[in-house]
Write a protein that binds this DNA or RNA. Sequence first.
DNA 1: ATTTTACTACGAAATATTTCGTAAATTAAC
DNA 2: GTTAATTTACGAAATATTTCGTAGTAAAAT
Lengths: 122, 122
Amino acid sequence: MKPTSSELNILTVLWTDGPSTVRHVNDQLNKQRRVGYTNTLKMMQLMHEKGLLIRDESSRSHVYSSAIEPESVKRDMVTQMVDSVFEGSTSDLLMHALGNYKPSKDEIEEIRKMIDRLEENE
Amino acid sequence: MKPTSSELNILTVLWTDGPSTVRHVNDQLNKQRRVGYTNTLKMMQLMHEKGLLIRDESSRSHVYSSAIEPESVKRDMVTQMVDSVFEGSTSDLLMHALGNYKPSKDEIEEIRKMIDRLEENE
DNA sequence: ATTTTACTACGAAATATTTCGTAAATTAAC
DNA sequence: GTTAATTTACGAAATATTTCGTAGTAAAAT
């Protein structure tokens, strides 16, 4: 699954706030940039048709929720990025991500643990 | 700089093979997927207008090269990805990248070194 | 010199993505 | 019950991206 930029904005709201009306999603989006209500509505209707969103029509204000898990989207986007930009090299991506990153001590420890775990699985 | 998908394909060829004619780029692209010559030509002309490519017109077959460094594009794309998908958390991206990754011992060592270097800079 | 080949220029078509306007329907307010 | 407010439906416009067809031009081959 490779959502477009606008779709991703909507998904992020739903992942964060849970099932929501168009009104709520639109309000959240407008904290970042101006976007019209019918615009958001149309996007969410299209996403519903695509199977990206689930819609509960039982009440007048339809309640939408994400049909896909954030983990799966994140995984796919990392994979796609590695393939398209880093020529298949995950370690190259890691190098770049680490390159312009100032992690806290805690985060560094977390990363170390992750690597230790990887090493054990050989 | 946030090149589109097609633009990225062309840039990758130029980064790998250096300054090239449209013919060469098109040949390389066709190893992956069918794409017409004029299609590639048009893309590269547009990219030239945008300032994404440099064009040497001295010989009949124009020779194009990338106007931007791969490092800078990679950096920008990682940043953009962190912002749009991982809500600003680089370590979240790292976790996902490490998550579905089976690195070799050498690569693990390389990553360790990178982390050690980060820790020193505190 | 004539024909063939390869390339660029140009415009437009095709597709995908995003945005908007208007009408119809339902609920809420008065 | 009428009016006002909110929501969805629908269609279309606007924009961005990708693909293609044709014509003109220069070089190469014969």
